[in-house]
Amino acid sequence: MKEAKKQGGLNAEIQSRIGHQLRAMYDDVVRQGVPDRFAELIRKLDGPEAAAAQIDETAKNDGRD
């Protein structure tokens, strides 16, 4: 019984540690905010057609290499 209790405690501690590491990794990126390239991208697109055109352009460029 004592052994089982100890294992349960260890497991909870490990799980909280994993949760912490996962959020630390994630939040580090979130804190970087919005890179300029994305702010510019969204600002310059007039609407759906412009976005679709850029997707086609990217696909064409990728196909070349």
């Binding site: 991208l41 969204i42 609407g47 759906p48 976005a51 850029q54 997707i55 990217t58």
Partner: peptide, 13 residues
């Protein structure tokens, strides 16, 4: 992320 944003806006309707 860039491709996601383009597709989201292309399909915003």
């Amino acid at each position: 992320v860039q491709e996601t944003l383009l597709r989201a806006i292309a399909n915003i309707d």
